[in-house]
Design a protein around this nucleic acid. Structure first.
Length: 572
RNA sequence: GCGCCCGUAGCUCAGUUGGAUAGAGCAUCCGAUUUCUAAUCGGAUGGUCGGUGGUUCGAGUCCACCCGGGCGCGCCA
């Protein structure tokens, strides 16, 4: 039983009994200002039904409910009945639940036996990951953790861009110029250079173009030989590079399936859609007309096959979607992809609707805003200087190292702490706002470790850890706690009790920022509390109560950080 | 032109199914460290919630229209 429900359930039952309605019809909300109470019942609707003035009804209810539920007091404030849970009882219930569930607190088993497929990160081979990949990667990884915390089987898929005509050009570039670049020490950077040269050569040199078309044709044919071998090598070194970055971020996928994986499924997919009778030929291309599905899609049919017979992006994604449903029978299939691809995913879903596929609502586009460069211009990845993700990580970690040297030069294990702090700053920067918001890439903001940042959360955690260490060393905190001293700590207790609801909401809306904002609020409250309340060296019963609060808070904060992909630190 | 998204303090953002005086961080100014980590805390300054109507006992939140910004719109992915 959740700690809060221990009080809220009987309260709702008592209110419902007064009116002879179902307890589910009674909605208790959290007052905006926690000084007003822990739970509130607005009386507007009931007052209307009973033809009474809301404040009068509130007053009447407050006195009627006095003593109805143990440890809960009721009082009327204007048109509201506010309820306040006695701090000792609240503390006991909340601490017990957190201690009992430990690392599982905030989660549940509601997802047991249910499967969520999450498609995220999805870089292209032959190029290093750059800052443009960071949002999908970090959001997707956090969603994986959130769903797993709720007991779901989360299947992470990395849909690598490893197929397309451009790889014909790359193979030819490698064939011609491999001795001119360094493919030994840093093959991915070498490949990037060749990739860019091949792009230019395809434009400028007809002979090069001819050769690359031939190479791509050979690749598509599936024939073994130099072309396929080269492509395989490119894939391999690229994945090795990605893996190193993922490891640093503590991220992993269950399946790495490039676009090439679905090559064999394209023709059967087209056949399946045709068999459903929803295709037609328009201007020489095979399309699915979507006018009837959605007025907004009338000018934009889904193209399955070009005039020249080859398939397209949408065809590949449909093939992948069908394959995933057959393999996983997912309850939800999430595509963590930028919002500029909204139309694409609307089209995919519209095709499913036209085919009368009942599981169509299970496919969801988890979209996020653009990553913009300085001046709010779109950060172009094609041209010229892209900021390589590993370089950015290095830079942030280096800044963390510098600050540690300044603030805590004696810190043991400074290197690994710097790594965790730097990555924490980077990760939180991407998870702190609603995902649909555009993000202006601002290095100064990422390098700032003050205010609403990952390091702020980690710092709070480290201070809590430090208190617990000292309590342990002093042998303090073991007395019978006097929870009456937590009288002024109600907002923290209520906050701690709320984590399970926050995690569930974050999963329902695929919005890790809800956890971020929860943790920021918790840390603000904890830091304020810390400035006013001393834990160690008080009377044994006071210290015991405060140690219990610190222990529960550290546990909750640690769990929350873990869900975001930020390392909770014991010291920093 | 059509479709979708966004618009809350100088800047970056919170604001759960409509509810009680609209909240943070950054920046600016003032203040706090002989005591549990000052990557912190307290205070001050800062708002016609883009605009106009509408629904409602009640609208930042819902509806309509308008304004501003962005993304997308058949043979790329």
């Amino acid at each position: 039983m959740r700690a809060m429900q221990l009080f809220a359930e009987p309260l709702r039952a008592a209110i419902a009994a007064k009116f002879g309605v179902e307890p589910d019809a009674i909605r208790l909300e959290a007052p905006r200002d926690d000084k007003q109470g822990d739970l509130a019942l607005p009386c507007f609707l009931l007052a209307k039904q009973l033809k009474k003035a809301p404040p009068a009804l509130a007053a009447e209810l407050a006195s009627a409910l006095a003593g109805a539920v143990a440890d809960v007091t009721a009082f009327a404030t204007g048109p509201y009945v506010n309820f306040r849970i006695a701090r000792p009882a609240l503390a006991r219930a909340v601490f017990a639940e957190i201690a009992e569930q430990g690392a599982r607190y905030g989660g549940s088993s509601e997802g047991s036996g249910r499967k969520v497929v999450i498609d995220f990160s999805s870089p292209n081979i032959a190029k290093p990951m750059h800052v443009g990949h960071i949002r999908s990667t970090i959001l997707g990884a956090s969603l994986m953790r959130i769903f797993r915390h709720l007991g779901y089987t989360a299947v992470g898929i990395n849909h690598i861009g490893d197929w397309g005509a451009q790889f014909g050009g790359l193979v030819v570039a490698i064939r011609r110029w491999r001795s001119e670049v360094d493919l030994e020490h840093d093959p991915v950077r070498g490949l990037l250079e060749l990739y860019q040269r091949s792009k230019a050569a395809v434009e400028a040199d007809p002979k090069f173009r001819e050769e690359s078309v031939a190479a791509y044709r050979e690749l598509e044919s599936g024939a073994e030989g130099e072309v396929r071998e080269t492509w395989r090598w490119v894939t391999q070194v690229s994945l090795r590079g990605f893996d190193a970055t993922y490891r640093r971020l503590g991220i992993g996928h269950d399946f790495v399936r490039g676009e090439s994986f679905y090559e064999q499924l394209l023709e059967p997919t087209v056949a399946r859609i045709q068999a459903a009778g929803v295709t037609e030929i328009s201007e020489g291309a095979l399309i699915v007309d979507l006018t009837g599905v959605d007025k907004g899609l009338k000018e934009t049919p889904c193209l399955l096959r070009q005039t020249n017979g080859t398939t397209l992006y949408a065809t590949r994604d449909l093939a992948a979607l069908f394959q995933r449903f057959e393999e996983f029978e997912f309850e939800r299939c999430l595509y963590v992809v930028g919002s500029e691809q909204r139309l694409h995913f609307r089209q995919l879903k519209a095709v499913l609707k036209r085919m009368a596929i009942e599981w169509e609502p299970r496919a969801e586009h988890v979209d996020f805003g653009l990553l913009l460069g300085p001046g709010r211009v779109k950060l172009a990845s094609r041209k010229g200087a892209v900021l390589v993700l590993d370089d950015l990580i290095d830079e942030v970690v280096e800044e963390a190292r510098r600050i540690i040297g300044e603030k805590n030069p004696d810190l043991a294990d400074a290197a690994s702490v710097a790594e965790a702090v730097g990555i924490g700053a980077l990760v939180f920067n991407d998870l702190k706002r609603e995902r649909i918001k555009d993000v202006v890439f601002d290095k100064a903001e990422i390098l700032s470790f003050e205010g609403e940042t990952g390091p702020y959360l980690q710092y709070t955690h480290a201070r809590l850890a430090s208190i617990l260490r000292k309590a342990e060393a002093n042998g303090e905190g073991g007395a019978e706690p006097d929870f009456a001293v937590l009288e002024g700590s109600g907002s923290i207790l209520m906050r701690l009790a709320r984590l399970p609801d926050v995690v569930r909401g974050a999963a329902a809306r695929c919005e890790p920022s809800e956890i971020s904002n929860y943790l920021l609020a918790l840390c603000r409250e904890l830091n304020s509390w810390y400035a006013e309340n001393r834990v160690l060296g008080e009377t044994p019963r006071t210290t015991a109560a405060r140690v219990a609060l610190i222990r529960a808070s550290k546990s909750v904060l640690g769990n929350g950080l873990g869900l975001l992909g930020i390392t909770p630190l014991e010291a920093m």
